[in-house]
Design a protein around this nucleic acid. Sequence first.
DNA 1: CCAAATTATACCCTTACAGGTATAATTTGG
DNA 2: CCAAATTATACCTGTAAGGGTATAATTTGG
Lengths: 75, 75
Amino acid sequence: MTTPLAAFVKQRRKLLHLSQTDIAAKAGVGLRFVRELEQGKATLRLDKVNQVLRLFSHELAPAPLDRTQLIGALL
Amino acid sequence: MTTPLAAFVKQRRKLLHLSQTDIAAKAGVGLRFVRELEQGKATLRLDKVNQVLRLFSHELAPAPLDRTQLIGALL
DNA sequence: CCAAATTATACCCTTACAGGTATAATTTGG
DNA sequence: CCAAATTATACCTGTAAGGGTATAATTTGG
């Protein structure tokens, strides 16, 4: 299963030519976590996800449900 | 402590004239969770937060860090 | 084509999230 | 003003998230 969040992380990571290990180290989370994140696990912890997103100058925020995939595709 | 997410939930909830108990029941989460959510706890589980946000036709999505507060204020 | 790097899966263990309940504090409207 | 409702805190418990490590599968570029 894949989710917009998972796709976002994987795409941004590759844009910077970083490995999952790199991300884990830079974000201060476990390697396992980065993998589960990129595989769309739904039960992750909010703060840990944000630690990763901050590497890309992003964070989790409430977004309208319908437009969310569309918008995600744009940026 | 308060966060954009916490503020969003509390504000939307009041807009619909619902109590924390109502939200908890409708979202299928514990009352304790709704409270910690509205108080800005950072370590919540992603899926549970989304269960609540869906009541407002929203969900968590990656958003650019800087503009996030500004945008949150608008909608 | 193959070796190195990267990613995926599986295991065990520790920790703390989430739920329930009970009680106190606060807010609200009658 | 006060009673009812709502919200906040505290405690205990089960469960699973997250970390570490080890190993298999996959991808990549030399």
